[in-house]
């Protein structure tokens, strides 16, 4: 995939943004040196990019995350070096935005600069199997709330419909119409369908733009 300077990943909370953000950062790093991933999720202190800090360090990807991330200190503080994302134009960054409008609110702090620079993509991550976004109407509602809270406009859709470890190839195939309908209703292109890499071989050739995900290890 071709990446703009900034890639924003937003969506309904629990849609799978963090895993996609990590995998995109890894992919960018294959062809570009100065890569950063920013964890702006200050709502949920449990599952986040910082859990992959070691792997990111090994790969030479800079992690921008709240000082309090992963410390169990339940304080919604933004990372202080967040502003380097918009000030340093040599960095290619993936920004993992918190879920829903509540999570996207933090993005409003830097979104005017991102819009002004206009070298970004903002992807809406959708998962048909999440209880509050099972259809097009509810997904559009969440999307509008996020755009309003974060003061930006989406540029594409990523279909990440899954049922966790129990996801089957059929579940993914059954989500395609939903993803296409969301794409049609919003007028935004369907960028890719992301799947656990264990399903990649089975689905390869059956879905356009299939994006394999190496899933982040969950904490015990």
């Amino acid at each position: 995939m071709e990446y703009k300077r900034i890639t924003l990943l937003c969506g309904h909370y629990g849609s799978g943004k963090t895993n996609i953000a990590l995998n995109m950062a890894y992919e960018i790093k294959e062809n570009y040196d100065n890569v950063a991933i920013a964890d702006l999720d200050i709502v949920n202190p449990y599952f986040r990019t910082k859990d992959s800090a070691e792997e990111l360090k090994e790969k030479g990807i800079r992690l921008i995350a709240s000082e309090y991330a992963g410390t169990n200190v339940d304080i919604p503080a933004l990372p202080q070096d967040m502003y380097s994302l918009t000030d340093d134009k040599t960095v290619k960054a993936v920004i993992d935005v918190g879920g829903d409008d509540r999570g996207a609110l933090a993005l409003g702090r830097i979104s005017p600069k991102i819009m002004a620079e206009n070298d970004y993509e903002a992807f809406l991550v959708i998962n048909k199997y999440r209880p509050l976004t099972p259809d097009v109407a509810s997904t559009l509602e969440v999307m509008a709330e996020i755009e309003t809270a974060g003061s930006f406009k989406f540029t594409g859709i990523i279909n990440n419909s899954n049922l966790g470890v129990q996801t089957t190839a059929e579940d993914v195939l059954n989500s395609l119409k939903y993803a296409e309908d969301v794409s049609k209703a919003t007028g935004l292109p369907l960028i890719c369908t992301s799947v656990n890499k264990t399903l990649f071989d089975e689905l390869c050739g059956k879905i356009d733009n299939l994006f394999p995900l190496k899933l982040q290890k969950k904490i015990n």
């Binding site: 629990g14 449990y46 599952f47 199997y129 049922l163 966790g164 129990q166």
Partner: peptide
């Protein structure tokens, strides 16, 4: 754990 974990 029960509150945060995701399962079908």
């Amino acid at each position: 754990t029960m509150g945060q974990m995701m399962e079908p």
